[in-house]
Design a binder for these strands. Structure first.
Lengths: 174, 174
DNA sequence: ACCCGAATGTAATATAGTAACGAATAGGCG
DNA sequence: CGCCTATTCGTTACTATATTACATTCGGGT
């Protein structure tokens, strides 16, 4: 069973999420301190909200939460906090979903590939190195220089595949 | 100089676009006939509009054009035609841009990678096979089964790199 | 001619994102 | 401390993107 615990399975499988989220928040605070950037209350709360699940959330979904907790209730409140987090590598924007997800590996590979489970809606980050290399190479053959790449996969995670009795992802269902 | 004429360079370089667009339209009509699908006036015109350039166009940009030519002026008019084209493999949707581009290689690789030039805004389709393989593999290591992938690169095409005097993409500019 | 399903058109509304500007606030410094 | 300045926060107003719902029209079969 060639299943490395690289964080993908860890995202989708049941786990101590309190611990998981708490550590990500600590890491975030630490990294920001090093950069002289301020983790203000709205920003911190926004990150906490994203960290409550491994799903991606729309800006307005985040905004509703913030508003309910006494922060501003206008779109820029959410967009600014989210943009701050993204630009500091603490959250990611998912193009396919027009939504945002907390980064679980701040600092490792800031431009990962995303694996979006269509069943449980969770989003995992996967190392994009080899994928990016393949893309860079095929582009280079046409004289195109890749500067930024969007790599997002929709599919089924191992946990959902097992639960939904989807045999294709196990051994063989014949 | 390992530059195959796989269509990437062909998209970005100056070329006989009349011929290029016309051929794509013919191919489209032929394919649809084979499927029993109808290339109605709005749909045909929508495809022609997309084919006028190699850029991606927003739905409302297309809609304006259609409305000016006597078709309906409400969003569904454009969205329906575009969705039809996409679902029949005659156009693609670019997630990064919330926009649509005509497919130049209907039938070949219906889920290509996209190369978007940030300078001329043109969009080329690149064979996504190797990229997709790399993605599928890294996902599989986490137990994730990829069903659909979005692969879009932003960068600089060869033509723009040469014009803008960007030496990095030529040999070396030291 | 009649019927039916597909395609087209409309109005209305939902969702996503940005611009512009004033009020509050945190730190730097006399 | 008191003042200044840059950042952050909040608001209003607006633009852009996309969908739902429903009436009408059109093509093709019988």
């Amino acid at each position: 069973m060639p299943q490395t615990d690289d964080g993908i399975a860890a995202t989708f499988a049941p786990h101590d999420h309190q611990e998981c989220a708490h550590r990500a928040l600590d890491e975030a605070a630490e990294r920001l301190a090093g950069q002289g950037a301020r983790l203000t209350p709205v920003r911190r709360r926004t990150l906490e909200i994203l960290l409550e699940s491994h799903r991606a959330m729309g800006a307005y979904e985040v905004l509703d939460r913030l508003a309910a907790e006494g922060f501003g209730r206008q779109p820029p409140v959410a967009y600014r906090a989210l943009e701050f987090l993204v630009s500091h590598g603490l959250a990611h924007r998912l193009q396919r979903l027009n939504a945002f997800a907390a980064c679980l590996h701040p600092g490792h590979d800031h431009h990962p590939a995303f694996l979006i489970c269509r069943s449980c809606d969770k989003v995992a980050e996967a190392p994009a190195g080899p994928v990016r290399d393949a893309l860079t190479q095929v582009a280079a053959q046409g004289g195109f220089r890749v500067e930024r790449a969007t790599i997002e996969a929709l599919g089924l995670c191992a946990t959902c595949a097992a639960q939904d009795g989807d045999p294709a992802s196990a051994e063989d269902g014949a």
